[in-house]
Design a binder for these strands. Structure first.
Lengths: 244, 244
DNA sequence: CGCATATTTGATAGATTTCAATTTATGTGG
DNA sequence: CCACATAAATTGAAATCTATCAAATATGCG
Protein backbone atom coordinates (compact mmCIF):
# COMPACT_ATOMS: atom_id res chain seq x y z
CA UNK A 1 0.00 0.00 0.00
CA UNK A 2 2.93 2.28 0.63
CA UNK A 3 4.08 4.37 -2.25
CA UNK A 4 7.67 3.38 -1.80
CA UNK A 5 7.19 -0.36 -2.08
CA UNK A 6 5.10 0.19 -5.20
CA UNK A 7 7.89 2.15 -6.74
CA UNK A 8 10.49 -0.36 -5.71
CA UNK A 9 8.55 -3.20 -7.27
CA UNK A 10 8.00 -1.35 -10.52
CA UNK A 11 11.64 -0.34 -10.60
CA UNK A 12 12.63 -3.96 -10.17
CA UNK A 13 10.35 -5.01 -12.99
CA UNK A 14 11.62 -2.19 -15.15
CA UNK A 15 15.15 -3.33 -14.57
CA UNK A 16 14.30 -6.81 -15.72
CA UNK A 17 12.45 -5.59 -18.79
CA UNK A 18 15.22 -3.16 -19.68
CA UNK A 19 17.75 -5.93 -19.72
CA UNK A 20 16.03 -7.34 -22.76
CA UNK A 21 14.12 -4.41 -24.21
CA UNK A 22 15.69 -0.95 -24.19
CA UNK A 23 13.11 1.64 -23.22
CA UNK A 24 13.21 5.40 -23.61
CA UNK A 25 12.94 7.85 -20.73
CA UNK A 26 9.29 8.54 -21.43
CA UNK A 27 8.41 4.87 -21.44
CA UNK A 28 10.38 4.28 -18.26
CA UNK A 29 8.62 7.12 -16.51
CA UNK A 30 5.22 5.90 -17.69
CA UNK A 31 5.92 2.39 -16.52
CA UNK A 32 7.05 3.60 -13.12
CA UNK A 33 3.87 5.63 -12.79
CA UNK A 34 1.62 2.63 -13.33
CA UNK A 35 -1.09 2.43 -10.71
CA UNK A 36 -1.51 -0.61 -8.53
CA UNK A 37 -2.25 -1.60 -4.97
CA UNK A 38 0.05 -3.62 -2.82
CA UNK A 39 -1.33 -6.58 -0.90
CA UNK A 40 0.23 -8.87 1.63
CA UNK A 41 -0.48 -12.54 0.99
CA UNK A 42 -0.36 -15.08 3.78
CA UNK A 43 1.91 -18.01 3.37
CA UNK A 44 0.34 -21.04 1.69
CA UNK A 45 -2.47 -19.06 0.26
CA UNK A 46 -3.69 -19.07 -3.35
CA UNK A 47 -4.14 -15.51 -4.48
CA UNK A 48 -5.11 -16.40 -8.01
CA UNK A 49 -7.37 -19.39 -8.53
CA UNK A 50 -8.12 -21.47 -11.60
CA UNK A 51 -11.34 -20.54 -13.31
CA UNK A 52 -11.88 -17.18 -11.68
CA UNK A 53 -11.54 -14.42 -14.25
CA UNK A 54 -8.87 -11.98 -13.13
CA UNK A 55 -8.59 -8.29 -13.84
CA UNK A 56 -5.19 -7.60 -12.36
CA UNK A 57 -1.71 -8.84 -13.03
CA UNK A 58 0.45 -9.62 -10.03
CA UNK A 59 3.89 -8.11 -9.72
CA UNK A 60 5.83 -9.72 -6.92
CA UNK A 61 7.40 -7.24 -4.55
CA UNK A 62 8.75 -9.55 -1.93
CA UNK A 63 8.52 -13.25 -1.20
CA UNK A 64 8.27 -16.38 -3.30
CA UNK A 65 5.40 -17.55 -5.48
CA UNK A 66 4.60 -20.85 -7.16
CA UNK A 67 2.49 -21.29 -10.25
CA UNK A 68 0.44 -24.47 -10.10
CA UNK A 69 -1.08 -26.39 -12.94
CA UNK A 70 -4.23 -28.06 -11.77
CA UNK A 71 -6.06 -31.09 -13.05
CA UNK A 72 -9.79 -31.46 -12.81
CA UNK A 73 -9.53 -33.83 -9.86
CA UNK A 74 -7.59 -31.31 -7.81
CA UNK A 75 -4.06 -32.63 -8.30
CA UNK A 76 -1.59 -29.82 -8.53
CA UNK A 77 1.95 -29.44 -9.61
CA UNK A 78 4.34 -26.52 -9.50
CA UNK A 79 5.19 -25.47 -13.03
CA UNK A 80 7.03 -22.25 -12.30
CA UNK A 81 8.56 -20.30 -9.47
CA UNK A 82 8.38 -16.54 -9.32
CA UNK A 83 10.64 -14.14 -7.53
CA UNK A 84 10.47 -10.43 -6.77
CA UNK A 85 10.35 -8.39 -9.95
CA UNK A 86 8.38 -11.06 -11.82
CA UNK A 87 5.02 -10.24 -13.27
CA UNK A 88 3.68 -13.66 -12.45
CA UNK A 89 0.64 -13.63 -14.71
CA UNK A 90 1.22 -11.12 -17.44
CA UNK A 91 -0.43 -13.64 -19.75
CA UNK A 92 -3.69 -13.03 -17.96
CA UNK A 93 -3.98 -9.59 -19.56
CA UNK A 94 -4.97 -11.31 -22.79
CA UNK A 95 -6.32 -14.53 -21.23
CA UNK A 96 -8.21 -13.57 -18.09
CA UNK A 97 -9.54 -17.09 -17.61
CA UNK A 98 -6.33 -18.36 -16.14
CA UNK A 99 -5.49 -22.03 -16.30
CA UNK A 100 -3.15 -22.09 -13.32
CA UNK A 101 -3.12 -20.90 -9.74
CA UNK A 102 -0.70 -18.57 -8.02
CA UNK A 103 0.27 -19.57 -4.53
CA UNK A 104 2.44 -17.85 -1.94
CA UNK A 105 5.23 -20.13 -0.75
CA UNK A 106 6.19 -17.55 1.87
CA UNK A 107 4.47 -14.46 3.17
CA UNK A 108 4.47 -12.43 0.02
CA UNK A 109 3.83 -8.85 -0.96
CA UNK A 110 2.42 -8.32 -4.41
CA UNK A 111 1.40 -5.33 -6.41
CA UNK A 112 -1.90 -5.83 -8.18
CA UNK A 113 -1.86 -3.89 -11.43
CA UNK A 114 -5.13 -3.45 -13.31
CA UNK A 115 -5.12 -5.10 -16.72
CA UNK A 116 -6.58 -1.91 -18.07
CA UNK A 117 -3.55 0.08 -16.96
CA UNK A 118 -1.22 -2.40 -18.67
CA UNK A 119 -3.30 -2.33 -21.83
CA UNK A 120 -3.25 1.44 -21.82
CA UNK A 121 0.54 1.43 -21.44
CA UNK A 122 0.91 -1.02 -24.30
CA UNK A 123 -1.47 0.99 -26.44
CA UNK A 124 0.34 4.22 -25.91
CA UNK A 125 3.93 2.94 -26.04
CA UNK A 126 4.62 0.29 -28.66
CA UNK A 127 8.04 -0.37 -27.19
CA UNK A 128 6.41 -1.22 -23.86
CA UNK A 129 3.99 -3.50 -25.68
CA UNK A 130 6.98 -5.23 -27.23
CA UNK A 131 8.70 -5.49 -23.87
CA UNK A 132 5.61 -7.11 -22.37
CA UNK A 133 5.39 -9.57 -25.23
CA UNK A 134 9.04 -10.37 -24.86
CA UNK A 135 8.55 -10.95 -21.17
CA UNK A 136 5.83 -13.47 -22.00
CA UNK A 137 8.11 -15.08 -24.55
CA UNK A 138 10.82 -15.52 -21.95
CA UNK A 139 8.30 -17.00 -19.58
CA UNK A 140 7.34 -19.50 -22.26
CA UNK A 141 10.98 -20.19 -22.94
CA UNK A 142 11.59 -21.02 -19.31
CA UNK A 143 8.60 -23.35 -19.33
CA UNK A 144 9.93 -25.05 -22.44
CA UNK A 145 13.32 -25.63 -20.85
CA UNK A 146 11.72 -27.04 -17.75
CA UNK A 147 9.99 -29.48 -20.03
CA UNK A 148 13.30 -30.62 -21.38
CA UNK A 149 14.67 -30.89 -17.85
CA UNK A 150 11.82 -32.85 -16.39
CA UNK A 151 11.57 -35.14 -19.36
CA UNK A 152 15.17 -36.03 -19.87
CA UNK A 153 17.37 -35.32 -16.88
CA UNK A 154 17.88 -37.27 -13.72
CA UNK A 155 17.14 -36.00 -10.25
CA UNK A 156 20.52 -34.41 -9.58
CA UNK A 157 20.65 -32.62 -12.90
CA UNK A 158 17.15 -31.25 -12.47
CA UNK A 159 17.96 -29.76 -9.12
CA UNK A 160 21.24 -28.36 -10.38
CA UNK A 161 19.48 -26.82 -13.34
CA UNK A 162 16.86 -25.19 -11.17
CA UNK A 163 19.47 -23.75 -8.84
CA UNK A 164 21.50 -22.43 -11.75
CA UNK A 165 18.43 -20.86 -13.30
CA UNK A 166 17.26 -19.24 -10.09
CA UNK A 167 20.75 -17.90 -9.56
CA UNK A 168 20.78 -16.15 -12.91
CA UNK A 169 17.29 -14.81 -12.40
CA UNK A 170 18.25 -13.35 -9.04
CA UNK A 171 21.32 -11.82 -10.57
CA UNK A 172 19.08 -10.03 -13.05
CA UNK A 173 17.40 -8.24 -10.17
CA UNK A 174 20.64 -7.35 -8.48
CA UNK A 175 21.54 -10.28 -6.25
CA UNK A 176 25.30 -10.37 -6.05
CA UNK A 177 26.18 -12.92 -3.40
CA UNK A 178 27.37 -16.43 -4.13
CA UNK A 179 23.86 -17.74 -3.95
CA UNK A 180 20.30 -16.51 -3.70
CA UNK A 181 17.43 -16.33 -1.24
CA UNK A 182 15.24 -19.41 -1.57
CA UNK A 183 12.89 -19.81 1.37
CA UNK A 184 11.17 -22.84 -0.08
CA UNK A 185 10.39 -26.02 1.77
CA UNK A 186 11.83 -29.31 0.59
CA UNK A 187 8.35 -30.60 -0.06
CA UNK A 188 7.59 -27.72 -2.41
CA UNK A 189 10.99 -27.92 -4.02
CA UNK A 190 10.45 -31.62 -4.64
CA UNK A 191 7.18 -30.80 -6.32
CA UNK A 192 8.85 -28.24 -8.54
CA UNK A 193 11.47 -30.65 -9.83
CA UNK A 194 9.09 -33.60 -10.02
CA UNK A 195 10.61 -35.71 -7.25
CA UNK A 196 9.58 -37.25 -3.98
CA UNK A 197 10.55 -35.19 -0.94
CA UNK A 198 12.53 -38.16 0.29
CA UNK A 199 14.53 -38.49 -2.86
CA UNK A 200 14.99 -34.75 -3.16
CA UNK A 201 16.42 -34.72 0.33
CA UNK A 202 18.97 -37.34 -0.58
CA UNK A 203 20.02 -35.57 -3.73
CA UNK A 204 20.37 -32.27 -1.88
CA UNK A 205 22.63 -33.98 0.56
CA UNK A 206 24.72 -35.31 -2.29
CA UNK A 207 24.92 -31.88 -3.88
CA UNK A 208 26.20 -30.55 -0.57
CA UNK A 209 28.57 -33.45 0.09
CA UNK A 210 30.15 -33.02 -3.29
CA UNK A 211 30.69 -29.34 -2.66
CA UNK A 212 28.43 -28.08 -5.40
CA UNK A 213 25.65 -26.24 -3.61
CA UNK A 214 23.94 -26.14 -0.23
CA UNK A 215 20.24 -25.66 0.34
CA UNK A 216 19.61 -23.87 3.60
CA UNK A 217 16.13 -23.26 4.90
CA UNK A 218 16.01 -19.76 3.44
CA UNK A 219 18.60 -19.74 0.72
CA UNK A 220 20.89 -21.61 -1.61
CA UNK A 221 24.61 -21.13 -1.40
CA UNK A 222 26.53 -22.04 -4.50
CA UNK A 223 29.91 -23.52 -3.78
CA UNK A 224 31.06 -24.46 -7.26
CA UNK A 225 29.16 -22.65 -9.96
CA UNK A 226 30.99 -24.29 -12.84
CA UNK A 227 30.18 -27.74 -11.60
CA UNK A 228 26.57 -26.77 -10.92
CA UNK A 229 26.19 -25.51 -14.46
CA UNK A 230 27.79 -28.61 -15.89
CA UNK A 231 25.69 -30.92 -13.78
CA UNK A 232 22.46 -29.22 -14.80
CA UNK A 233 23.65 -28.66 -18.37
CA UNK A 234 22.54 -25.12 -17.90
CA UNK A 235 22.73 -22.53 -20.63
CA UNK A 236 21.52 -19.08 -19.59
CA UNK A 237 20.73 -18.04 -23.16
CA UNK A 238 17.04 -18.81 -22.82
CA UNK A 239 16.61 -16.35 -20.00
CA UNK A 240 18.37 -13.47 -21.68
CA UNK A 241 17.58 -13.63 -25.37
CA UNK A 242 20.15 -11.81 -27.38
CA UNK A 243 22.97 -12.33 -24.92
CA UNK A 244 25.31 -15.19 -24.35
CA UNK B 1 4.09 -21.26 -53.33
CA UNK B 2 0.65 -21.94 -54.70
CA UNK B 3 -1.96 -19.42 -53.79
CA UNK B 4 -4.42 -22.06 -52.73
CA UNK B 5 -2.27 -23.74 -50.11
CA UNK B 6 -1.37 -20.35 -48.67
CA UNK B 7 -5.03 -19.53 -48.31
CA UNK B 8 -5.83 -22.89 -46.84
CA UNK B 9 -3.13 -22.51 -44.20
CA UNK B 10 -4.21 -19.03 -43.24
CA UNK B 11 -7.82 -20.14 -43.12
CA UNK B 12 -6.85 -22.96 -40.80
CA UNK B 13 -4.98 -20.59 -38.54
CA UNK B 14 -7.84 -18.13 -38.63
CA UNK B 15 -10.21 -20.85 -37.57
CA UNK B 16 -8.07 -21.65 -34.59
CA UNK B 17 -7.69 -18.02 -33.58
CA UNK B 18 -11.39 -17.37 -34.00
CA UNK B 19 -12.24 -20.14 -31.59
CA UNK B 20 -10.75 -18.05 -28.83
CA UNK B 21 -10.80 -14.52 -30.16
CA UNK B 22 -13.78 -13.34 -32.17
CA UNK B 23 -12.60 -11.29 -35.12
CA UNK B 24 -14.57 -8.92 -37.36
CA UNK B 25 -14.91 -9.33 -41.11
CA UNK B 26 -12.27 -6.73 -41.83
CA UNK B 27 -9.79 -8.39 -39.53
CA UNK B 28 -10.53 -11.78 -40.99
CA UNK B 29 -10.00 -10.51 -44.50
CA UNK B 30 -6.76 -8.79 -43.53
CA UNK B 31 -5.44 -11.91 -41.89
CA UNK B 32 -6.29 -14.04 -44.89
CA UNK B 33 -4.48 -11.59 -47.14
CA UNK B 34 -1.24 -11.84 -45.20
CA UNK B 35 1.72 -12.44 -47.49
CA UNK B 36 3.99 -15.40 -47.08
CA UNK B 37 5.80 -17.99 -49.10
CA UNK B 38 5.24 -21.67 -48.84
CA UNK B 39 8.22 -23.98 -48.48
CA UNK B 40 8.53 -27.71 -48.46
CA UNK B 41 10.74 -29.04 -45.69
CA UNK B 42 12.42 -32.42 -45.95
CA UNK B 43 11.78 -34.89 -43.21
CA UNK B 44 14.23 -34.76 -40.31
CA UNK B 45 15.39 -31.31 -41.17
CA UNK B 46 15.69 -28.32 -38.83
CA UNK B 47 14.15 -25.33 -40.52
CA UNK B 48 14.68 -23.00 -37.58
CA UNK B 49 17.94 -23.27 -35.67
CA UNK B 50 18.93 -22.04 -32.24
CA UNK B 51 20.91 -18.85 -32.31
CA UNK B 52 20.10 -17.76 -35.82
CA UNK B 53 17.97 -14.63 -35.80
CA UNK B 54 14.74 -15.27 -37.67
CA UNK B 55 12.59 -12.83 -39.58
CA UNK B 56 9.67 -15.06 -40.40
CA UNK B 57 7.15 -16.96 -38.39
CA UNK B 58 6.28 -20.45 -39.56
CA UNK B 59 2.69 -21.45 -40.10
CA UNK B 60 2.37 -25.16 -40.64
CA UNK B 61 0.33 -26.09 -43.67
CA UNK B 62 0.80 -29.80 -43.72
CA UNK B 63 2.92 -32.28 -41.81
CA UNK B 64 4.20 -32.52 -38.26
CA UNK B 65 6.76 -30.37 -36.49
CA UNK B 66 8.66 -30.73 -33.24
CA UNK B 67 10.04 -27.91 -31.18
CA UNK B 68 13.34 -28.84 -29.56
CA UNK B 69 14.97 -27.30 -26.57
CA UNK B 70 18.69 -27.53 -26.91
CA UNK B 71 21.44 -27.51 -24.33
CA UNK B 72 24.86 -26.12 -25.02
CA UNK B 73 26.37 -29.56 -25.46
CA UNK B 74 23.94 -30.44 -28.21
CA UNK B 75 21.46 -32.54 -26.28
CA UNK B 76 17.93 -31.96 -27.49
CA UNK B 77 14.50 -32.72 -26.27
CA UNK B 78 11.09 -32.27 -27.84
CA UNK B 79 9.15 -29.70 -25.84
CA UNK B 80 6.20 -29.24 -28.15
CA UNK B 81 4.55 -30.77 -31.16
CA UNK B 82 2.95 -28.63 -33.82
CA UNK B 83 0.24 -29.56 -36.26
CA UNK B 84 -1.24 -27.87 -39.32
CA UNK B 85 -2.75 -24.53 -38.43
CA UNK B 86 -0.19 -23.86 -35.72
CA UNK B 87 2.01 -20.82 -35.91
CA UNK B 88 4.94 -22.67 -34.47
CA UNK B 89 7.07 -19.69 -33.51
CA UNK B 90 4.82 -16.71 -33.11
CA UNK B 91 6.97 -15.82 -30.11
CA UNK B 92 9.83 -15.10 -32.45
CA UNK B 93 8.12 -11.94 -33.66
CA UNK B 94 9.13 -10.27 -30.43
CA UNK B 95 12.13 -12.49 -29.65
CA UNK B 96 13.92 -13.16 -32.93
CA UNK B 97 16.83 -14.87 -31.19
CA UNK B 98 15.00 -18.09 -30.72
CA UNK B 99 16.00 -20.50 -27.99
CA UNK B 100 14.62 -23.61 -29.59
CA UNK B 101 14.77 -25.36 -32.93
CA UNK B 102 11.94 -26.34 -35.23
CA UNK B 103 12.29 -29.71 -36.86
CA UNK B 104 10.17 -31.50 -39.42
CA UNK B 105 9.10 -34.93 -38.18
CA UNK B 106 7.58 -35.67 -41.58
CA UNK B 107 7.87 -33.98 -44.95
CA UNK B 108 6.25 -30.69 -44.06
CA UNK B 109 4.91 -27.72 -45.88
CA UNK B 110 5.13 -24.43 -44.05
CA UNK B 111 4.18 -20.89 -44.83
CA UNK B 112 6.87 -18.41 -43.89
CA UNK B 113 5.25 -15.15 -42.88
CA UNK B 114 7.46 -12.09 -42.50
CA UNK B 115 7.53 -10.74 -38.97
CA UNK B 116 6.98 -7.33 -40.42
CA UNK B 117 3.66 -8.38 -41.94
CA UNK B 118 2.50 -9.76 -38.59
CA UNK B 119 3.59 -6.60 -36.80
CA UNK B 120 1.76 -4.52 -39.34
CA UNK B 121 -1.40 -6.58 -38.83
CA UNK B 122 -1.14 -6.22 -35.07
CA UNK B 123 -0.49 -2.51 -35.38
CA UNK B 124 -3.47 -1.91 -37.55
CA UNK B 125 -5.95 -4.25 -35.87
CA UNK B 126 -5.82 -4.32 -32.09
CA UNK B 127 -8.12 -7.33 -31.98
CA UNK B 128 -5.65 -9.27 -34.11
CA UNK B 129 -2.86 -8.19 -31.79
CA UNK B 130 -4.91 -9.55 -28.91
CA UNK B 131 -5.57 -12.78 -30.78
CA UNK B 132 -1.85 -13.23 -31.39
CA UNK B 133 -1.07 -12.60 -27.74
CA UNK B 134 -3.73 -15.06 -26.71
CA UNK B 135 -2.29 -17.62 -29.08
CA UNK B 136 1.07 -17.20 -27.35
CA UNK B 137 -0.62 -17.49 -23.99
CA UNK B 138 -2.21 -20.78 -24.99
CA UNK B 139 1.14 -22.02 -26.20
CA UNK B 140 2.62 -21.18 -22.81
CA UNK B 141 -0.31 -22.83 -21.12
CA UNK B 142 0.29 -26.04 -23.02
CA UNK B 143 3.95 -25.93 -22.05
CA UNK B 144 2.99 -25.44 -18.41
CA UNK B 145 0.70 -28.45 -18.47
CA UNK B 146 3.36 -30.57 -20.05
CA UNK B 147 5.55 -29.61 -17.15
CA UNK B 148 2.97 -30.92 -14.76
CA UNK B 149 2.65 -34.09 -16.81
CA UNK B 150 6.32 -34.83 -17.11
CA UNK B 151 6.99 -34.05 -13.49
CA UNK B 152 4.23 -35.94 -11.84
CA UNK B 153 2.63 -38.58 -14.00
CA UNK B 154 3.75 -42.06 -14.86
CA UNK B 155 4.48 -43.28 -18.34
CA UNK B 156 0.98 -44.44 -19.19
CA UNK B 157 -0.67 -41.25 -18.00
CA UNK B 158 1.76 -39.08 -19.92
CA UNK B 159 1.05 -40.87 -23.16
CA UNK B 160 -2.68 -40.80 -22.54
CA UNK B 161 -2.52 -37.09 -21.82
CA UNK B 162 -0.60 -36.37 -24.98
CA UNK B 163 -3.05 -38.36 -27.07
CA UNK B 164 -6.00 -36.61 -25.48
CA UNK B 165 -4.43 -33.23 -26.04
CA UNK B 166 -3.55 -33.89 -29.65
CA UNK B 167 -7.06 -35.14 -30.24
CA UNK B 168 -8.59 -31.92 -29.01
CA UNK B 169 -6.15 -29.84 -30.98
CA UNK B 170 -6.96 -31.73 -34.15
CA UNK B 171 -10.64 -31.29 -33.47
CA UNK B 172 -10.07 -27.53 -33.36
CA UNK B 173 -8.89 -27.64 -36.95
CA UNK B 174 -11.75 -29.80 -38.09
CA UNK B 175 -10.66 -33.40 -37.56
CA UNK B 176 -13.80 -35.39 -36.89
CA UNK B 177 -12.80 -39.03 -36.90
CA UNK B 178 -12.31 -41.12 -33.78
CA UNK B 179 -8.63 -40.31 -33.73
CA UNK B 180 -6.13 -38.08 -35.45
CA UNK B 181 -3.24 -38.24 -37.91
CA UNK B 182 0.02 -38.73 -36.04
CA UNK B 183 2.81 -39.80 -38.36
CA UNK B 184 5.44 -39.76 -35.63
CA UNK B 185 8.00 -42.43 -34.98
CA UNK B 186 8.09 -44.18 -31.64
CA UNK B 187 11.55 -42.81 -31.00
CA UNK B 188 10.34 -39.24 -31.40
CA UNK B 189 7.19 -39.90 -29.46
CA UNK B 190 9.28 -41.33 -26.63
CA UNK B 191 11.34 -38.19 -26.63
CA UNK B 192 8.24 -36.03 -26.43
CA UNK B 193 6.88 -37.80 -23.37
CA UNK B 194 10.28 -38.21 -21.73
CA UNK B 195 10.55 -41.99 -21.98
CA UNK B 196 12.83 -44.56 -23.49
CA UNK B 197 11.64 -45.88 -26.85
CA UNK B 198 11.64 -49.35 -25.35
CA UNK B 199 9.41 -48.39 -22.49
CA UNK B 200 7.17 -46.30 -24.68
CA UNK B 201 6.67 -49.28 -26.90
CA UNK B 202 5.54 -51.38 -23.98
CA UNK B 203 3.17 -48.78 -22.72
CA UNK B 204 1.68 -48.29 -26.17
CA UNK B 205 1.06 -51.97 -26.31
CA UNK B 206 -0.67 -51.82 -22.97
CA UNK B 207 -2.81 -48.90 -24.08
CA UNK B 208 -3.86 -50.97 -27.07
CA UNK B 209 -4.36 -54.20 -25.13
CA UNK B 210 -6.63 -52.44 -22.69
CA UNK B 211 -8.70 -51.05 -25.51
CA UNK B 212 -7.94 -47.39 -24.86
CA UNK B 213 -6.07 -46.22 -27.93
CA UNK B 214 -3.96 -47.61 -30.73
CA UNK B 215 -0.91 -45.95 -32.22
CA UNK B 216 -0.54 -46.81 -35.87
CA UNK B 217 2.41 -45.68 -37.92
CA UNK B 218 0.55 -42.64 -39.24
CA UNK B 219 -2.23 -42.06 -36.78
CA UNK B 220 -3.78 -42.65 -33.41
CA UNK B 221 -7.14 -44.30 -33.14
CA UNK B 222 -8.99 -43.66 -29.93
CA UNK B 223 -11.05 -46.60 -28.78
CA UNK B 224 -12.30 -45.35 -25.42
CA UNK B 225 -12.10 -41.62 -25.08
CA UNK B 226 -13.45 -41.47 -21.55
CA UNK B 227 -10.87 -43.89 -20.29
CA UNK B 228 -8.12 -42.07 -22.16
CA UNK B 229 -9.09 -38.79 -20.55
CA UNK B 230 -9.29 -40.37 -17.13
CA UNK B 231 -5.96 -42.11 -17.50
CA UNK B 232 -4.23 -38.91 -18.55
CA UNK B 233 -6.23 -36.75 -16.14
CA UNK B 234 -6.86 -34.54 -19.08
CA UNK B 235 -8.81 -31.31 -18.82
CA UNK B 236 -9.19 -29.47 -22.12
CA UNK B 237 -9.75 -26.11 -20.44
CA UNK B 238 -6.15 -25.02 -20.91
CA UNK B 239 -6.37 -25.31 -24.66
CA UNK B 240 -9.58 -23.36 -25.04
CA UNK B 241 -9.58 -20.60 -22.46
CA UNK B 242 -13.07 -19.46 -21.70
CA UNK B 243 -14.75 -22.74 -22.60
CA UNK B 244 -15.27 -25.85 -20.64
C1' DC C 1 9.44 -26.79 27.60
C1' DG C 2 6.42 -29.00 24.35
C1' DC C 3 3.89 -29.13 20.18
C1' DA C 4 3.79 -28.91 15.22
C1' DT C 5 6.24 -28.85 11.12
C1' DA C 6 10.18 -29.91 8.43
C1' DT C 7 14.03 -32.73 7.62
C1' DT C 8 16.59 -36.92 7.67
C1' DT C 9 17.35 -41.96 7.62
C1' DG C 10 16.48 -46.97 6.55
C1' DA C 11 14.49 -50.75 4.11
C1' DT C 12 11.80 -52.37 0.36
C1' DA C 13 8.98 -52.27 -3.75
C1' DG C 14 8.19 -50.64 -8.25
C1' DA C 15 8.89 -48.19 -12.47
C1' DT C 16 11.95 -47.12 -15.99
C1' DT C 17 16.35 -47.50 -18.25
C1' DT C 18 19.91 -49.96 -20.30
C1' DC C 19 21.88 -53.37 -23.12
C1' DA C 20 21.47 -56.77 -26.62
C1' DA C 21 19.06 -59.19 -29.95
C1' DT C 22 15.19 -60.23 -32.97
C1' DT C 23 11.34 -59.40 -35.67
C1' DT C 24 8.65 -56.63 -38.56
C1' DA C 25 7.82 -52.89 -41.76
C1' DT C 26 9.36 -49.87 -45.58
C1' DG C 27 11.48 -48.58 -49.61
C1' DT C 28 14.40 -49.36 -53.73
C1' DG C 29 16.44 -51.33 -57.79
C1' DG C 30 16.46 -55.05 -60.74
C1' DC D 1 6.86 -58.50 -58.31
C1' DC D 2 10.78 -60.08 -55.74
C1' DA D 3 15.28 -59.61 -53.19
C1' DC D 4 17.74 -56.80 -50.63
C1' DA D 5 18.98 -52.99 -47.55
C1' DT D 6 17.53 -50.01 -44.16
C1' DA D 7 14.82 -48.16 -40.65
C1' DA D 8 11.30 -49.02 -37.21
C1' DA D 9 9.14 -51.76 -33.89
C1' DT D 10 9.22 -55.44 -30.57
C1' DT D 11 10.96 -58.64 -27.01
C1' DG D 12 13.84 -60.32 -23.00
C1' DA D 13 16.76 -59.89 -18.98
C1' DA D 14 19.30 -57.27 -15.81
C1' DA D 15 20.67 -52.94 -13.69
C1' DT D 16 19.40 -48.46 -11.87
C1' DC D 17 16.83 -44.93 -10.32
C1' DT D 18 13.05 -43.25 -7.85
C1' DA D 19 8.89 -44.00 -5.12
C1' DT D 20 6.79 -45.82 -1.15
C1' DC D 21 6.31 -46.87 3.57
C1' DA D 22 7.55 -46.20 8.25
C1' DA D 23 10.09 -44.15 11.75
C1' DA D 24 13.41 -41.07 13.97
C1' DT D 25 15.52 -36.72 14.50
C1' DA D 26 15.75 -31.59 14.03
C1' DT D 27 13.88 -27.22 14.06
C1' DG D 28 11.03 -23.33 14.91
C1' DC D 29 7.69 -21.22 17.69
C1' DG D 30 4.43 -19.94 21.38
Amino acid sequence: MTRSSTETALALYLRRLSGRSPLGDEERAALLATPGFATLIDVERDFVRVGEPVHHACLIIHGLVARFAQTRNGDRGIVAIHIPGDMADLHSVVAPQVTWALHALTPTRILRIPHEALRELARRYPSIAAAFSRDCAVDASILAHWNANLGRKNALARIAHLFAEMHVRYQLIGERSGGFPFPITQVDLADAVGLTPVHLNRMLKRLADEGVAVKNPDSVRILDEQRLIRLGQFDPAYIQPGRR
